[in-house]
């Protein structure tokens, strides 16, 4: 199913978690296998939660057994046989105000690093349909795949302490939207108003792995 036949790497997260990391490079086909594995593993004995990451999965326990080898073997076997899941996720359109000191304070840094104009950055950022690979970081935050690699901009040397919710930003080869105010090392290029997390709903997060996000232009501020 995937080109790379290397074994995944399994490691311990102390006494309460196991991490399975699929071989590089980061790709959607691998992520679909991760989703498939998560569905299986969730029903294994004593598993608290199976949490997909970026081409990896963390499996949590209240307390791991002393002998971890049987679980490792079972995981490797499950990985070998698991079918990737082609999720029929929903598409979420996000109107974004790009640029300007208020909404996109680091747009200029992305311009400088990529050598592209603001219009071209916006064109390339709004072009793809971004698959939601996983949730993490903070409540409702989505890790997205599929950003145009020409937009890649290194994380900031000094993290921002209070990035507002709805900030659309680029960190390395990834892009995402912060779901609530908090610290971030990413470059903010725009702002959207969507609420990504509502604790009164089940599930509380707006996006699930397998959904898609499409950024569209509401306004470009020079």
């Amino acid at each position: 199913m995937i080109a790379n036949e290397e074994q995944p790497f399994i490691s311990l997260l102390g006494t309460s978690g196991i991490l399975l990391q699929a071989p590089a490079p980061l790709q959607l086909e691998t992520q679909q296998k991760i989703w498939g594995l998560a569905e299986q593993v969730e029903s294994w004995p004593n598993v608290l939660e199976a949490i997909p990451g970026m081409n990896n999965i963390m499996i949590t326990y209240l307390e791991l057994p002393e002998d971890i080898e049987p679980i490792k073997a079972k995981l490797l076997d499950a990985w070998r046989h698991v079918e990737g899941i082609q999720k029929d996720g929903k598409v979420i359109d996000l109107p974004v105000i790009y640029g300007g000191t208020e909404c996109g304070p680091h747009m200029q840094d992305v311009v400088t690093h990529t050598g592209l104009s603001i219009e071209e950055i916006v064109r390339r950022h709004t072009a793809p349909l971004y698959p939601v690979y996983a949730l993490g970081s903070h409540p409702g935050f989505c890790y997205l795949g599929g950003m145009d690699s020409t937009l890649a901009t290194p994380r900031r040397q000094v993290p921002i302490t209070d990035l507002p919710g709805g900030a659309v930003s680029i960190g390395g080869v990834q892009t995402g939207v912060s779901a609530s105010q908090g610290p971030s090392g990413w470059n903010t290029i725009g702002r959207t108003k969507m609420q990504f997390f509502d604790v009164n709903k089940m599930p509380p997060a707006l996006c699930r792995p397998g959904d898609y996000i499409r950024f569209c232009v509401e306004e470009i501020i020079q």
């Binding site: 997260l13 102390g14 990451g53 949590t60």
Partner: peptide
Amino acid sequence: TLSHGIVPGV
């Protein structure tokens, strides 16, 4: 490393 789940104590 790519983003992945962590537990308290890491």
